[in-house]
Amino acid sequence: MRATPTGRQLRLGTELRKLRERAGLTATQAGQLLGVKQNQISNMEAGRVGVSPERVHTLACHYDCSDRDLVASLSDMTGDRTRGWWEEYREILPTPLLDLAEVEHHAHQLRTAVTVHIPGLLQTAEYAREVFRQDVPELPPPDIEHRISFRIKRQAVLFRKSPTPHHAVIHEAALRMQFGGAEVTRQQLGHLLDMSEREHVTIRVIPFSAGTYAGSGQSIYYFLGPVPQLDTVNLDQSHGPVFLDAAAQLEKYRVLLGRMESTALSHDKSRDFIHNVARSL
C-alpha cells in the first residue's frame, strides 16, 4: 500500500470515485460487484493501492460508463509507474510542487495567464531567483537554489522531442516588473522573444490600454489532459499550488482563459510589444 500517493495516482482514484458516484453505487456495492471488500474500493479511490488497466475497464463496465475515450485515458494512467525526475526533490521541496511537475509532464497542452510574474516555464534562472527571494517567510539560499533548479528542469517539457504546446497570456504589468533590475528584466524579455519563435510556444500580451478584463489579477495554469474531463487547473497561491478538477471549475477557467485571450494582442503584435518594452529599459 502506498504511503504517499502522487498527484496523478490521486487523480485516477478521484475519477474512479466520480464514475462510481454517477452510477449511484456505494463503495460497498462496488466491492460486491468486483468481489472485493469495501476498503479495497476506498483504497483504490484514495490512490493508496495500484489499479490495473483491466480493473479500470471492469469498474467502468460495472459503473455503466460508455465514454470509451475517458475509460481508455484512465486505463493509460495506470501504466506509467516509473519514477519521474521530480522524485529527486521528494525530501527537499513541498509535495504540491512535485505534483505540479508530474501533471505538467503528462499534460497534452499548457495554457497560462499571468498578471505580475512571467510564467514559470518561460523564466530565466536569474529572474526566478529574484522571484523566490520575495517569498515570505524568506527562503534560505540553498532552498532558493533548489527551487530554481527544479523550475529549470520543469522547462524540459518545452524542449523534448515532442514538446508540449504552451499558450501564454501575459499582462503588460508582468513585462514591466523589474525583478532583479533592468538588466535581469531585459534578459528575461529577450528570452521570452526567443521562446516565442518556437512553433509550439504562443505568447500574447494584454496591454494596459485594454483596461479591465475577466480574470484580471489571477494567475491561472491550465493543463489539458487526453480528454476534457481529465484537465486540471493550478492556481498559484502564496502557500503553494492549488489543484482543481471539478467539472464546473474546469469550465469556469476555460471561459476565463478564452476571454483573456480574446482581450490580448495577437502573437506577432505581442512580440513587437515585448521588443518595445525591452528597448525602453
Rank of each mutant, 00 (worst) to 15 (best):
Met1Gln: 10
Thr4Val: 14
Pro5Met: 05
Pro5Leu: 04
Arg8Ile: 10
Arg11Thr: 08
Gly13Tyr: 11
Arg20Asn: 03
Thr26Ile: 06
Thr28Met: 08
Gln29Ser: 08
Ala30Tyr: 10
Gly31Pro: 04
Gly31Phe: 07
Gly31Lys: 14
Leu34Cys: 11
Gln38Glu: 14
Gln38Trp: 08
Ile41Ser: 12
Ile41Ala: 11
Met44Trp: 09
Gly47Arg: 07
Arg48Asn: 10
Pro53Ala: 01
His57Ala: 11
Thr58His: 11
Leu59Thr: 10
Cys61Leu: 13
His62Ile: 06
Asp69His: 11
Leu70Lys: 15
Val71Gln: 05
Val71Leu: 00
Ser73Asp: 06
Leu74Cys: 02
Asp76Lys: 15
Thr78Ile: 03
Thr78Gly: 04
Arg81His: 08
Glu88Tyr: 10
Glu88Leu: 13
Tyr89Ser: 07
Glu91Thr: 15
Pro94Glu: 00
Pro96Asn: 02
Val103Glu: 09
Glu104Phe: 02
Glu104Trp: 02
Glu104Pro: 00
Ala107Val: 01
His108Ile: 06
Gln109Met: 11
Arg111Gln: 01
Thr112Leu: 01
Thr115Ser: 13
Val116Ser: 13
His117Cys: 11
Pro119Arg: 03
Gln123Ile: 08
Gln123Lys: 09
Thr124Cys: 01
Tyr127Trp: 04
Tyr127Lys: 03
Phe132Val: 02
Asp135His: 14
Asp135Ala: 14
Glu138Gly: 02
Glu145Cys: 05
Ile148Ser: 01
Ser149Gln: 14
Phe150Val: 08
Phe159Asp: 12
Phe159Tyr: 12
Thr164Gly: 01
Pro165Cys: 04
Ile170Tyr: 03
Ala173Ile: 08
Ala173Asn: 12
Gly181Trp: 09
Gly181Met: 00
Ala182Phe: 04
Glu183Asn: 14
Val184Arg: 05
Gln187Tyr: 10
Leu189Ile: 05
Gly190Lys: 00
Leu193Asp: 03
Asp194Thr: 14
Met195Val: 03
Glu197Val: 04
Arg198Leu: 12
Arg204His: 07
Arg204Lys: 13
Arg204Ser: 13
Phe208His: 09
Ala214Gly: 06
Ala214His: 11
Ser219Trp: 08
Ile220Leu: 12
Tyr221His: 15
Ser238Arg: 14
Pro241His: 09
Pro241Lys: 05
Phe243Thr: 00
Leu244Phe: 09
Leu244Ser: 04
Ala248Phe: 10
Glu251Thr: 15
Glu251Ser: 14
Lys252Gly: 03
Val255Arg: 15
Arg259Ile: 01
Ser262Asp: 07
Ser262Trp: 05
Leu265Glu: 07
Leu265Gln: 05
His267Glu: 11
Asp268Cys: 09
Lys269Ala: 12
Lys269Tyr: 10
Asp272Pro: 02
His275Ser: 13
Asn276Gln: 14
Ala278Asn: 01
Arg279Met: 00
Leu281His: 12
